[in-house]
Design a binder for these strands. Structure first.
Length: 273
DNA sequence: CACGAGACCTGTTCGC
DNA sequence: TGCGAACAGGTCTCGT
């Protein structure tokens, strides 16, 4: 579910920057693993023994991963399609799809809820063991128009699947990819190596703009998954099949590209050239 | 290398 | 009303 802006929103909430209590400085007392497969690494017994007593030093984000710097280990969480986190009083009732709970001092609980069970947790001495495969962070300074253009020139792949590939660029998901391509006026099936320098720069700008907008609106809330965001009310094309394109008024089209629903404006996003 | 299909999962919505 | 199909924010693996 969450893409970069939703994960960023959750990370800042857990840092205590949005009103509630924060995690940094608290000590993990105990772990409850309710669905074993949620834990990618290490084995459940070692996880429980190792994480108990470790303090949370900082909460960050890399692409769609939540990164918890403990002492001495690191905890990584990936929410995948339906994951969500709650920081709540330890006395609050557990919810139907809670998969992993961490009890913290101050009578708090961090609950990892995940209806579809795709989410994963890792406890690692070195987070790079998992994060090292990720491509550039799109909002970081080292992600540049020239760098993007250079990478685009090295592949003949279609833009939509390419932007979803986390080794090419890390953090975009189905929503923000469709939104960025629409803002850039690029067709989802355009070949990467066919973009001009200025088209690559336009795409670079669209990616950053759409992600920054998502963060500014606290992410997107759709259906029963994830709450609190407002960005779903500002979609240009995503889940707006048949509705007018905000730029030209043509009806938004939905197709399937790489087995993912794909929304675009047939007028603003032409295949050719 | 690039692509498609299938797997992993449950819940909601849509069409008949 | 009921029931099956389609669909959902992600990623991995396998076969071609």
């Amino acid at each position: 579910m969450p893409e970069l802006p939703e994960v960023e929103t959750i990370a800042s909430t857990l840092r205590g920057e949005r009103g509630g209590p924060g995690l940094p400085g608290r000590v993990i007392q105990r772990a409850h693993l309710l669905w074993p497969r949620t834990l990618a690494e290490p084995a459940p017994a070692e996880f429980a023994a190792r994480i108990a007593g470790q303090p949370v030093r900082q909460v960050g984000r890399r692409a769609k991963y939540l990164v918890f710097q403990l002492e001495p280990d690191w905890l990584l969480l990936h929410l995948r399609m339906s994951g969500d986190l709650r920081l709540e009083p330890a006395s609050a009732p557990l919810q139907p799809h809670d998969r992993l709970c961490l009890e913290l001092d101050g009578s708090l609980r961090l609950a990892f809820n995940d209806a579809r069970k795709f989410g994963r947790a890792w406890l690692l001495a070195d987070p790079q063991a998992v994060l090292c495969r990720l491509g550039p962070e799109p909002l970081a300074e080292d992600f540049t128009p020239a760098g993007l253009h250079h990478k685009l020139m090295q592949t003949r792949r279609q833009l939509k699947p390419l932007l979803l590939d986390q080794t090419f660029i890390a953090g975009l998901g189905n929503i923000y990819t469709d939104e960025a391509l629409h803002m850039a006026g690029l067709h989802p099936l355009r070949r990467a190596d066919s973009l001009s320098t200025s088209e690559a720069e336009t795409l670079w700008h669209a990616i950053r703009s759409v992600l920054a907008d998502g963060i500014r609106r606290n992410g997107a809330s759709i259906d029963w998954v994830y709450r609190g965001g407002d960005f779903q009310n500002h979609f240009r094309v995503y889940q707006r099949t048949g509705q007018p394109c905000p730029v030209c008024g043509a009806a938004v089209v939905r197709t399937v590209v790489g087995q993912r629903g794909t929304h675009y404006c047939p007028q603003c996003q032409k295949t050719g050239s």
